[in-house]
Design a protein around this nucleic acid. Structure first.
Length: 475
RNA sequence: GGUCCCAUCGUCUAGCCUGGCCUAGGACGUCGGCCUCUCACGUCGAAAACAGGGGUUCGAAUCCCCUUGGGACCA
């Protein structure tokens, strides 16, 4: 059996979106699983809409996702001359012909066919013409079989039959001599010896025509696998209306590449009840046979959950590395000691789904100033807690060392003296030192924050309570 | 409009090919309990689906047909 070769062939007319990424992923996974090659080809034949910016964005997104390719990127536009040579071959072999029908005429016929309830295929006026078009502009059309049927043996869809009568004599070369998509794709895939074409279901209708082309050109027909589309929550094709659809948007939102890849893999593919996969597991277990047939809806909540699972598998130090760019982006100071950020990451990964959320949770340590949430202060910084808090502040100040054990002692002394539960004092302290009602464990927070900053913030809170009492705003 | 694809909890899916093990399983989300210094994690539990109708069969989520609904392509 020949080595498996797959390809991803995006057109550079925008960023890499979720759907394209999943197509690329399946191609990548399939190739890796079979120890084959994964080829990247940029289909930039539409010179009007193709941009270098898009090419860069796509390569960047692929790289971030870890979808490394073995060959390419190849650029389809550079093969235009070669594509034309194959058309000449078809022309001289009588498998293609020149069509001089004016575009307006074609449009009118198409409209008429539709109105009459027929498939709007070209009426083949020029199919058997022998005369030279002379100076008139012409397109080159494929001489498609007129009867019978073309069967697409699709790995995920099964055998799909298309009556040849319904298939058009498709245009190979436009009147300006430029090759069309179907022609270029077929020739490139054949020349790059692609064995498995894994692409979106939206290409299924094109496939019988392409198969006919492969045959006419004398190429082996590759295996096809048309994967179902990814839909938005309203079951229409995923688009900008549905929110973030670009891969890089997910990077910016603090997703891990492994998390997004895992989610994408499970959208349309499954392996029993397993939800969480490492890269290696994905490669080991991926199979086109387990790809579903129905289109799937992108579910952001589940994507977040999967990402959270991957967050938890990373070591604190690795997490710290990934957090750094986000900390910097926020304009916050990195802690002096790397170990502090790692320790913080270890605490935060239990309570966040994305790196952005983690950084948000790190505000009490990394933000230049904390802002105390007014509601939280109102609720937890009450006069009744003033004395216990003051007592605790002094115990903390007197501590000979600032570690978990000592902190516990200070708290125990205070709760014992006032006969209150830990929760009574922990929450006010949390609000005082983090400004919020939710944070990692209070001892860990204080330890990381250090004595100086902890005491400063406790003092501010105490002062706030005093002010509140004298203002008479307290009930 | 024509051709083609698709149809299990709100969502992703297992089961379908090779009918009985399905009282339809798992996961996200939702709701509730437990744990608990808060949040979260964890844990226990709940609500939640075979699109509809015919047929085949002793027996259908599973096979066949029709209908309905959704989607893709053709511009």
């Amino acid at each position: 059996m020949p080595t498996v070769r797959t390809r991803f062939a995006p057109s550079p007319t925008g960023y890499l979106h979720i759907g394209g990424a999943r197509t690329a992923l399946f191609n990548h996974l399939f190739a890796r699983h079979h120890r084959g090659a994964f080829v990247l080809r940029i289909e930039d034949t539409d010179r009007e809409r193709s941009t270098q910016q898009s090419i860069d964005a796509i390569l960047d997104a692929m790289t971030w996702l870890g979808l490394d390719w073995d060959e390419g990127p190849f650029f389809q536009s550079q093969a235009a001359a070669a594509h034309r040579e194959h058309v000449d071959r078809l022309l001289s072999g009588g498998r293609a012909y020149r069509c001089t029908c004016p575009a307006e005429e074609l449009d009118a016929k198409r409209a008429a066919a539709r109105a009459a309830g027929r498939t709007p295929v070209y009426d083949r006026t020029c199919r058997d013409r022998r005369d030279d078009p002379g100076g008139r502009p012409y397109t080159v059309r494929f001489k498609a079989p007129l009867d019978g049927a073309t069967v697409v043996s699709d790995i995920v869809k099964g055998d799909v039959q298309f009556p040849n009568q319904e298939l058009d004599d498709l245009i190979l070369l436009r009147s300006d001599g430029s090759p069309t998509y179907n022609l270029s794709a077929v020739i490139d895939d054949a020349l790059m010896r692609i064995t498995h074409i894994i692409r979106g279901e939206d290409h299924l209708s094109n496939t019988p025509k392409q198969i006919q082309l492969y045959r006419a050109l004398g190429f082996d027909v590759p295996a096809f696998a048309h994967i179902p589309l990814i839909l938005g929550s309203d079951r229409t094709r995923l688009s900008k209306r549905h929110g973030a659809t670009s891969v890089t948007a997910y990077r910016d939102m603090g997703y891990l590449a492994d998390g997004l890849v895992n989610y994408l893999a499970r959208l349309g593919w499954s392996h029993g009840d397993q939800e969480i996969f490492t890269r290696d597991e994905l490669i080991e277990k991926f199979s086109l046979a387990s790809v579903g047939t129905a289109a799937g809806v992108y579910n952001p909540e589940k994507a977040e959950w999967v990402n959270a699972c991957h967050l938890k598998t990373l070591e604190p130090a690795q997490l710290a590395d990934r957090m750094r760019p986000f900390v910097v982006a926020r304009g916050w100071q990195l802690p002096e000691r790397d170990s502090d950020l790692a320790a913080l990451a270890g605490l935060l990964r239990e309570r966040a789904s994305t790196l952005v959320e983690m950084v948000e949770g790190a505000h009490f340590l990394l933000a230049p100033d904390i802002e105390v949430d007014p509601d939280a202060a109102q609720k937890h910084l009450r006069p009744a807690i003033f004395e216990p808090l003051r007592r605790l502040r002094h115990s903390l100040a007197a501590l000979s060392s600032w570690d978990d054990e000592s902190l516990h002692h200070a708290f125990d002394a205070t709760t014992a003296a006032f006969e209150i539960k830990l929760g009574k004092i922990a929450q006010p302290v949390r609000v005082a030192v983090t400004g919020r009602t939710a944070s990692p464990g209070i001892f860990e927070v204080l330890e990381l924050l250090g004595r100086e900053r902890s005491l400063e913030r406790l003092d501010s809170a105490l002062a706030w309570i005093e002010r509140r009492a004298t203002d008479g705003t307290e009930t």
